[in-house]
Nucleic acid binder design. Structure first.
Lengths: 224, 224
DNA sequence: CCGGCCAAGATTGGATACAATATCCAAAAT
DNA sequence: ATTTTGGATATTGTATCCAATCTTGGCCGG
C-alpha cells in the first residue's frame, strides 16, 4: 500500500503565517508608512490570540520593517531619504557582485525563469504586477548561485525599499526603462559576460535610485 | 535644581534583554553550534516567563543565529563551510566599500577610537578580548559614516561569523597578522587614501577567510 | 477661550494556564 | 531478542488573564 507522503512537521505556525502576511503587506505598501500595527486588530483578522502576533511583530522589527516603542506600539518604518539612498547603494554593490558570481556558471533553468519573468514584467500593466515580476526577474538570476546569504541580504534590502520604488514605477516611464535594462542584463547573462552583467545591474539600480530620489526630493520640497 | 535626565521610556523590555544576552552568548561561542535553546531553562535563568524568551528566539531566528523547527525547538545554527565562505565574501565586499565611503570624510574622533581599539587589540592576550577589540576597531571606522544600513548588514555578518573566527585567532598567529594589517588600514585611513584602505580591508578579510577555511577543511577531513 | 490636570478606557508587556506535539520507556507480541 | 505499541513525561505553541503604561476626554482655574 502506498501513501502520498507529505511532511506535516513543515506546516507553518500561526506566528509564521501572520509574519509573512504582515511583511508582504508592508512591502507592497498596503500598510502605509508610519501606520500603527494594533495587536488586537491583527489578532482578530487572523482569528488568533495576540501571542503569535507579537512574535510576528518582533521579527518584523528585526528586519527593520517596523519600529516599536515600549508600551506605545509598533509602526511601519518611515525611512528618511538619506537611508533610502544608502539602501540603493548597498543594493547596487551587492546585487552587481551577486550577478557577477552567478554568470560564470549560469544555470539554463534560471535563465529561462528570468526570461519568463522579464516577459511577464514587460506585459504587466499594473504596479503590483510590475513589482512582483521585477523581483521575480532579479531573484531568479541571483538565486541561481545557490548563495543563501547573498539572497538573504538582497531580499532584506528589497523588502525595505520596494514600497518606495512602487510609487516610482507608477508615476514615470520607469517601467519601460526597466524593461529595456532588464533585456540588456539578460543578454549579458546569456552571453556569459559577467563584468557587463554586473555593470548593467549596478547601473540599473543607480538609475532607479536617481529618479526615485529626484521625485522624493521634489515631494519633500513641495510638502514642507 | 538639576536632575540627571534619563529617558525611562528607553528602558528595555525583558524580551530585549534576553535577546541581547542570547545573541552575545551565541556570537561569543558560549553556546555551542547546534546547541538547543530550551525556553524553560532560559526563562528560569532570567527569572521571566517563556513569553519574552520566545520573542527573543524569534528575533534570533530572523538573524540566522538559530534555526527552529516546530515543536522540536531552537538550535544554534551550524553553518556549512560553504556558507562561511560566502559570508566572508560578503564581508569583504561590503566592508571594503564601507571603508571607502567613510575615508573621504573621516571624523578624527572615530580615528582616535579606532586607534585605541587597535592598541587594546595588540595588547590583549585572550581570544575573548581579541574578538571584542577587533570588532571595536572595525566598527569604529565603519560607524564614522553614520550609515545605519551598512552597519546593520556588517554587524549581521560579523554576528554570524565571529564564533568561527574566534577559534581561528586562538590557534594560529592570526592575531599578530591582524595587528599588522590593522596598522596598515589605520594608516591608509589617516592619510585619506580611500582606495588603499578599501583594498587592505578586503585583503584583511580574505586572509582571515583563507586561513579559517584551511583549518576547517583540515578539521573536517580529520573528523570524518 | 485656553491650557493644565485627572480619571477612565485602551493598548502593550508579561505571567499563568491549557493544548498540541515530540520524546522516551516499558510492556507485549512475534 | 527484536520490534512494535501504548502511554507517561517533557517541550513547544497558543489562549486567557493580570499588570504597567499610554491616551483621550472631560473638568477646572485662569
Amino acid at each position: 500500500m502506498k501513501f502520498e507522503r507529505t511532511d506535516l512537521s513543515q506546516t507553518r505556525s500561526a506566528a509564521d503565517i501572520v509574519f509573512a502576511a504582515l511583511r508582504d503587506a508592508i512591502v507592497k505598501g498596503d500598510l502605509e508608512n508610519g501606520a500603527q500595527l494594533r495587536q488586537e486588530e491583527i489578532a482578530a483578522a487572523f482569528n488568533v490570540s495576540r501571542i503569535p502576533v507579537r512574535e510576528a511583530i518582533a521579527r518584523l522589527e528585526q528586519l527593520g520593517l517596523v519600529e516599536t516603542r515600549r508600551y506605545k506600539g509598533a509602526f511601519v518604518t518611515d525611512l528618511p531619504i538619506q537611508e533610502i539612498e544608502e539602501i540603493f547603494r548597498l543594493r547596487a554593490l551587492v546585487e552587481s557582485d551577486a550577478i557577477r558570481r552567478v554568470v560564470v556558471d549560469m544555470d539554463p533553468t534560471a535563465l529561462a525563469e528570468a526570461r519568463a519573468a522579464h516577459d511577464a514584467f514587460a506585459q504587466a500593466t499594473d504596479p503590483a504586477a510590475w513589482m512582483e515580476q521585477n523581483r521575480r526577474f532579479h531573484c531568479a538570476l541571483y538565486r541561481a548561485g545557490q548563495q543563501r546569504h547573498y539572497m538573504g541580504v538582497i531580499e532584506n534590502l528589497l523588502n525595505l525599499s520596494d514600497r518606495y520604488l512602487r510609487a516610482q514605477l507608477s508615476l514615470t516611464d520607469g517601467q519601460q526603462k526597466a524593461v529595456a535594462e532588464h533585456a540588456l542584463i539578460l543578454a549579458a547573462c546569456e552571453n556569459g559576460d559577467a563584468d557587463l552583467a554586473a555593470r548593467l545591474t549596478a547601473q540599473h539600480i543607480e538609475d532607479a535610485k536617481t529618479s526615485l530620489l529626484t521625485r522624493l526630493n521634489e515631494k519633500r520640497a513641495a510638502s514642507g
